[in-house]
Amino acid sequence: MQQKSWQQRLLTLPPMGYLLIFFAIPTLIMLFASFRYTGEYGGLAPWYSIENGTLAFDLTLENWQRLFETDIYLRLFFKSIGYALVTTLLCILLGYPLALMIARSQKKHRDLLLLLVILPFWSNFLVRIYAWMIIFSPNGALTQMINSLRDLLGLAPISIMYSATAVITCLVYVHLPFMVLPLYANLEKHNPALLDAAQDLGANRWRRFWRITWPLSLSGVYAGSILVFIPVLGMFAIPDLLGGTDGIMIANVIKQQFVESRDWPFGSVLSMVLTATAVLVVLLGAKIGQQGAR
């Protein structure tokens, strides 16, 4: 028994220590920073002062109050959640058939087909955004094509660049593999005998899908949805590069507080709210997932 706990410590302590120092403590520091004042030129003001020999704490709730002062930040949160939901939904719509097709193709082809999904994911994320910037540019082939079509129909030309459409398309593009992989992992394990049995019992294709494949794959759908939803919620680069005048999401404002406005305490407040949202989503997803698995 003695030996076992020695082993356990050897295995557990190094990674735990590292993550405590570089993940848990920074998060706590951020929580603490949300109660501090901004320094005169940005950054943080000292959180305590000693005047006439007495210690005084310079902490404040002001930053949190600011969050509720107007509804703009809450609205922005809801807007970001909306974007994340739409993206997740589109990823399911596009990713599910893809994962199903791979899972049902011949075994020798599966690895290749799956690799083809992951491959773009391994090219740099900014490169992928950049590709869409080219596509959406008003002089790009896609926009030209759409606009000549609209022209035929007598409609005014539109611009896709700098719009919500551009942002969401790119969000879906970047996160699609996150949906396909867990879905495939799930679908691949399904026992084909079940479908055969259903077919023998006279169930048509749709019925077989909705009554067997879909319910069995729900845990994969939840896993994929979380993997898509959360990173989308924290995305700032795509709205930054492709979004128009109203394209920003919550992460853009967080970035703005840390980079442009130098208001770290308020940036920390927004970050904490985002953290809480992410934790909630994960817990919710885990709970639904458990129920679904039952």
Binding site: T12, I29, I226, K255
Partner: peptide, 25 residues
């Protein structure tokens, strides 16, 4: 109890949060 949480949390958190908290740290 603690380790799985610590291992999974950084994966589950949006990147930007880790970025800004590490910056403060």
């Amino acid at each position: 109890k603690l380790l799985p949480g610590l291992v999974l949390a950084p994966i589950a958190m949006p990147d930007i949060l880790m970025g800004v908290s590490l910056l403060l740290f």
